[in-house]
């Protein structure tokens, strides 16, 4: 559950590529256990920021802490305390269900014994025991989604980053996936999620909208709708993103 403890703090984060400013003085905090929506048009700087938060790229300047660890000096600790999943890349198609679980658990640093126990638990919980030796490419999309998410949090991370996890999936699976997100948050995992589906923005505790490398808005969905006199998050998004395009 959400409380006031901050799990991510970002102060004056700047990232430049040559003369191009991808992240322009970002300031925000993510609270422990919250579902934090990270929205923005293509090229607004979302991916750049996520890569920095995951310890994959250094900022040009600014102070960033993730899970209490410093982004410049404690990247390995950060990597051990986060999970990551995206729609584009998650599971290996030519490995089996069991092999994928073992592979990811190993990457995330679990020991051999722990892997066996966790893998069995996970397959039981997801009802995938009968599919243990099936190749990922042969299982239905809905199962893949659940499995991809479950392996991303197999090491009980403090934070899971979900980069467009529901892009292109069918409408029923898309909704089932948000139930998983919600359950993870209820279990205390902080969820940092990007999406292009504006209805999903409504399920977040707080939403930030990036425009041209800056944070244009950050608040709860209901407060944002109020501020921008909008009936839904799609209108909020269009108002913010369009305003700067015209300018």
């Amino acid at each position: 559950m959400t409380n006031n403890e901050n799990i991510i703090t970002v102060k004056d984060l700047v990232k430049k590529f040559g003369h191009f400013v991808a992240n322009d003085h970002l300031n925000f905090e993510v609270r422990k256990g919250e579902i934090f929506g990270f929205l923005g048009a293509n090229g607004a700087g979302k991916t750049t920021a996520i890569r920095i938060l995951c310890g994959l790229s250094y900022p040009t300047s600014g102070e960033v802490k993730v899970g209490g660890f410093d982004i410049y000096t404690q990247r390995n600790q950060i990597k051990r305390n986060i999970g990551y999943m995206s729609q584009k890349f998650s599971l290996y198609d030519d490995l089996t269900v069991y092999e994928n679980i073992r592979f990811y658990a190993g990457i995330y640093g679990l020991g051999r014994k722990e892997i066996t126990i966790k893998a069995a638990m996970l397959m039981k919980r997801l009802d995938l025991e009968s599919a243990k030796d099936k190749l990922i490419r042969d299982i239905p999309q809905g199962w893949k989604q659940k499995l991809a998410f479950s392996v991303a949090i197999i090491h009980d991370p403090k934070i899971v980053f979900l980069d467009e996890p529901t892009g292109g999936v069918d409408p029923i699976i898309r909704r089932q996936f948000w139930n998983l997100i919600y359950e993870a948050a209820r279990d205390g995992i902080t969820v940092f999620v990007t999406t292009h589906y504006m209805d999903e923005a409504e399920y977040c505790d707080r939403v930030t909208i990036m425009v041209d490398g800056k944070i244009a808005a950050l608040d709860t969905p209901s407060a944002l709708k109020k501020t921008y006199s909008a009936t839904n998050m799609n209108e909020v998004f269009l108002k913010l993103a369009r305003a700067t395009m015209v300018a």
């Binding site: 923005g40 048009a41 293509n42 607004a44 467009e164 892009g167 292109g168 292009h196 504006m198 799609n234 998004f237 269009l238 993103a241 369009r242 395009m245």
Partner: peptide, 13 residues
């Protein structure tokens, strides 16, 4: 074929 996949709401419109 899926010209708007992965494209934000403004560009889609």
């Amino acid at each position: 074929d899926e010209p708007t996949t992965g494209v934000d709401a403004v560009s889609r419109m």
